[in-house]
Nucleic acid binder design. Structure first.
Length: 479
RNA sequence: GCCGAAGUAGCUCAGCUGGCUAGAGCACUAGAUUGUGGAUCUAGGGGUCAAGGGUUCGAGUCCCUUCUUCGGUACCA
């Protein structure tokens, strides 16, 4: 018999229970925030028609789409984000009430070459408001980002926003054609990463980096680069100052006053909602690389883990539905990089890792008492306590060890002795974990001490377990 | 895509100018301990030395090719 090697195609990975629980927890928290805002969930298939995904043109785009075959031999592919399927749904279900404010959570696929921290299948959490032109919609997305970060226990973060329209006006002012503007945005967006010198070189003549790689410049003139530098030099920790200076320097550019006013309104809305300069700033170097953004753009940095880059970013994209309807539908939204944020939260020690969902393990070390164990287990489950019944008749040591390895906080011991006395032995596993740190050698003492163990009347089992679960554990747990 | 580095047990690695049956630590399994987690002791399982070819009496070690992984860089709708 030829054995099949267990393996995964490159760029794909498994998430073992511990990782899945951490991810689930994070998603639940953020979902809770946006449901608090009244967003509704939307689920679309992983597979879409290829032309729906890639539009009429876009060969580059098609290269990173995984194609899929079906019996009808249709041209299909896996979605690479949630935004395009959303645009399709908007166009297809015209009866949907507007504004349509929805969130989508699920895997997306990109057939790129995987790199460190980059996979071919990854989960995105998207929130979008469709059908609202008002900057209130953009503001609300930003507020939700802030609330999400705080609900996740991160206080030191910064949401930075800018506006593509303001940037576009600037580029026009610097005599840069609209076709080139996306290239320019891409370079400006690197400011934080590579510094102003390299940005200037990349905007103009290009340069050769340390590894000998040739970076092609955009070929702008020195005057054009000057203009761009003058613009992105406008920075301040206070939103009002940025708006003011922007108005002073560029207010006379045709159409600029109107767009600067949008930034001002957003800033005002944020103030009213209670999100001040310490959390949300205007940063004119935020451009985002995506071509379809046409209004406010924003991103989120964890100040204690900036190396992870933006963990939650987005912007306004009023023209995406055009592809399907031929008419403009205003839309704005953001996408949370679930895996990136999770990695950052782990680095910051903000995620409690759990190996099991069970709070209680019922051990079964006397085979004549199987019915007692089953009854006990379901009694706890009906009381809403997450309970695992040990399967098998291994000796007590193994069963307790199993609970220990899965970090189940409570283990129940119930044998003939307990039954005769009408009690259950409850074992608070955290106590033993703390004790084991101090105790060296001496197995006898370890056996005698039985840390964290106590008996309660069998009838009071549920109440006692509830009480113990409500108490703070004896050892320090991450929240 | 480009530049660089590395691939030996599940993980981290040792293995000298080519030479006994390829090792260690950790992890895992079992026992000491069939009613108690940790520590300790004992035993055990686990390897196509990334793959293929070449040189050689002999290759984990040298040469070539391919693959993969990790850095950096570019791209990222």
């Amino acid at each position: 018999m030829t054995l099949i090697e267990p393996r995964l195609s490159r760029g794909l990975r498994d998430l073992l229970p511990e990782d899945t629980l951490a991810r689930q927890h994070m998603i639940d928290v953020v979902r809770g925030v946006y449901e608090l805002y009244g967003f509704v969930p939307l689920t679309t298939p992983a597979v879409e028609y290829l032309d729906v995904l890639s539009g009429s043109g876009g060969q580059e785009i098609q290269q990173s789409i995984f194609t899929v075959s079906n019996p009808e031999e249709e041209q299909l592919g896996l979605r690479f984000d949630h935004t395009v399927p959303l645009a399709r749904v908007i166009a297809q279900y015209k009866e949907l009430p507007k504004p349509f404010r929805r969130y989508s959570i699920g895997p997306v696929w990109r057939a790129d070459k995987p790199g460190p921290g980059r996979f071919r299948e990854f989960v995105q959490f998207d929130i979008d408001s469709v059908g609202v032109q008002s900057e209130l919609a953009d503001t609300e997305i930003i507020c939700g980002i802030c609330d999400s970060m705080e609900a996740l226990g991160v206080s030191n973060y910064q949401v930075r926003f800018s506006s593509r329209r303001v940037l576009n006006l600037l580029l026009a002012y610097a005599s840069i054609t609209p076709e080139r503007s996306v290239d320019v945005f891409r370079v400006i967006d690197k400011l934080e990463k590579i510094g102003p010198k390299k940005v200037r070189l990349e905007l103009t003549a290009g340069y050769t980096d340390e590894s000998g790689d040739r970076i092609t410049g955009l070929g702008l003139t020195a005057e054009q680069a000057d203009q761009i530098e003058k613009f992105i030099a406008i920075r301040s920790p206070k939103r009002a100052d940025v708006v003011k200076e922007l108005g002073g320097t560029f207010g006379s550019v045709p159409g600029a006053a109107e767009e600067i006013a949008v930034l001002e309104k957003m800033s005002h809305n944020l103030d009213v909602a209670g999100y001040r300069d310490d959390r949300v700033i205007i940063d004119l170097s935020i451009a985002r690389g995506l071509a379809y953004y046409n209004g406010p753009v924003f991103e989120t940095i964890l100040m204690d883990a900036p190396q992870f880059g933006s963990v939650f970013s987005g912007g306004r994209y009023d023209d995406l539905v055009m592809r399907f309807l031929g008419e403009r539908v205003p839309a704005t939204g953001a996408s949370m990089g679930v895996d990136r944020l999770l990695a950052a939260l782990r680095a910051l020690d903000k995620i409690r890792l759990r190996k099991s969902t069970a709070e209680v393990l019922v051990t079964t070390f006397d085979s004549s008492m199987k019915d007692d164990y089953t009854a006990m287990t379901f009694e706890l489950r009906r009381a809403g306590i997450r309970t695992e019944l040990y399967m098998g008749t291994d000796r007590a040591g193994k069963q307790i060890k199993y609970g220990d390895r899965l970090e189940i906080p409570i283990v129940l011991l119930y044998g003939p002795d307990e039954k005769a006395k009408g009690v259950v032995t409850i074992k608070d596993m955290s106590a033993g974990r703390a004790r084991a740190q101090q105790l060296t050698g001496s197995r006898d003492r370890w056996l005698q001490e039985r840390p964290g163990q106590f008996e309660v009347p069998r009838a009071e089992l549920v109440a006692a377990v509830r009480k113990l679960l409500a108490e703070p554990p004896a050892f320090t747990e991450r929240t």
